[in-house]
Computed example of a mutant assay.
Amino acid sequence: MAAQIAELNHVRIEHNDAQHQQRENDGHHSHSHVSETIRVDVIHPENEKEGTDDHVGPFTKEVMDFELPKRFTLPLTLTPYDGLGDPKKFLKKFRSIMIVNGASDTILCRCFPNYLDGPTLEWLCALPAGSISRFQQLAKLFEEHFAGSAIYLHDSDYLNTIKQGQNESLKDYMTYFTKIAISILDLHPEVHLHALKSGLRPGKFQETIAIAKPKTLAEFWERAKRQIDIEELRQAQKSDRTTYRDDDKTPTSKKGFKVTPRFDSYTQFNAKREDIIKEILNSKLIKPPRKAGTYQDTKNVDKSKYCAFHQKHGHTTDDCVVAKDLLERLAAGPP
């Protein structure tokens, strides 16, 4: 391989090896620089000066002939760019870290390949030979080529744009929020929590969070989980009420109408369904339905049977299809 590419790869390999060694010997490196750095001895291949004048590689001969300061230090705080993420932000981080370490424009050019990985490094090596003389040239080409990569990843600022919809359940809001949050690298928990709270729809739960002031995501999730359970109980009750209203429209000539079970099998609870229903009603998590429905003949009601859920005679709580469906949904939990 040509001397220029060989040198780029050599410095990059030393940089990667130094990173690994740095993690194992944390605390033993020099603190002479503001950012975390590793000292790299610049080695010039013996055949570099003996080679021909054929110029291979993106940088001009002037850039490659520039002698780096003795025992120049490469910062370790920047993760190599692999083609994912905003190239503008990467360039900004690279410049700021290198400038703090006293890097000139030529040094920026020489060090930039060390912070590229995979397809981005291949892109750099494929640029026209001797076409880059200043870092600004390289930065412009880099930004233009990888501009499309910015759309694939969100950053923490994007979380502040996520708001709970007027009719969106807390569960749906948190599911979408979490999906975006886990795709953000190095997301700080405090930033995560602040954005999550800020996106809540105005209402009782938002007021509860404002008063409780959870300091961790775990604390917030515990309160959110209880609220989600309450919302799902209310939704189940609302669905049952809709069923009853539909039943009220059934012609009176249809005798013996029965509610169709929604499940093929039901969970066997340790306690009786009647006791569980009573406990839920007593806790006021849900309210009893207003009507029992028209599936029972009110003229010939069996007074020996009573449903704690409908609070009417005619069938038992254990045989009540609506109550059994409700408990089954609650037992199954979130889908």
Results as ranks from 00 to 15, higher is better:
105 D>H: 00
106 T>Q: 08
106 T>P: 05
106 T>E: 07
107 I>K: 01
108 L>V: 01
108 L>P: 00
108 L>W: 00
112 F>C: 06
114 N>Y: 00
114 N>P: 01
116 L>P: 05
117 D>T: 01
120 T>F: 05
121 L>D: 04
122 E>L: 10
126 A>D: 13
127 L>Y: 01
129 A>G: 12
130 G>S: 15
134 R>C: 09
135 F>Q: 00
138 L>D: 04
140 K>M: 12
140 K>A: 14
141 L>C: 08
142 F>T: 02
144 E>F: 03
147 A>L: 09
148 G>R: 09
148 G>L: 11
150 A>G: 07
150 A>H: 11
151 I>V: 13
153 L>W: 03
154 H>G: 14
156 S>K: 08
157 D>K: 07
158 Y>V: 08
159 L>F: 04
159 L>Q: 07
160 N>T: 04
160 N>C: 06
160 N>D: 03
160 N>M: 04
161 T>R: 06
164 Q>C: 11
164 Q>I: 01
165 G>S: 11
166 Q>L: 11
167 N>C: 13
167 N>V: 08
168 E>Q: 15
170 L>A: 14
170 L>D: 13
171 K>I: 02
172 D>I: 06
174 M>P: 03
175 T>V: 13
175 T>S: 15
176 Y>D: 15
177 F>P: 06
177 F>V: 05
178 T>I: 11
180 I>T: 11
180 I>C: 12
185 L>F: 05
187 L>N: 11
188 H>D: 15
188 H>M: 11
189 P>Q: 04
191 V>L: 09
191 V>N: 09
192 H>R: 10
194 H>F: 07
194 H>L: 13
195 A>Y: 01
196 L>T: 07
198 S>P: 01
203 G>K: 00
207 E>N: 11
208 T>P: 02
209 I>T: 03
214 P>M: 09
214 P>D: 08
214 P>H: 04
215 K>Y: 03
217 L>I: 04
217 L>R: 08
219 E>I: 00
222 E>M: 07
222 E>G: 04
225 K>H: 12
225 K>C: 10
225 K>I: 09
225 K>S: 15
229 D>T: 09
229 D>Y: 06
230 I>Q: 14
231 E>I: 02
233 L>F: 12
234 R>L: 11
234 R>T: 06
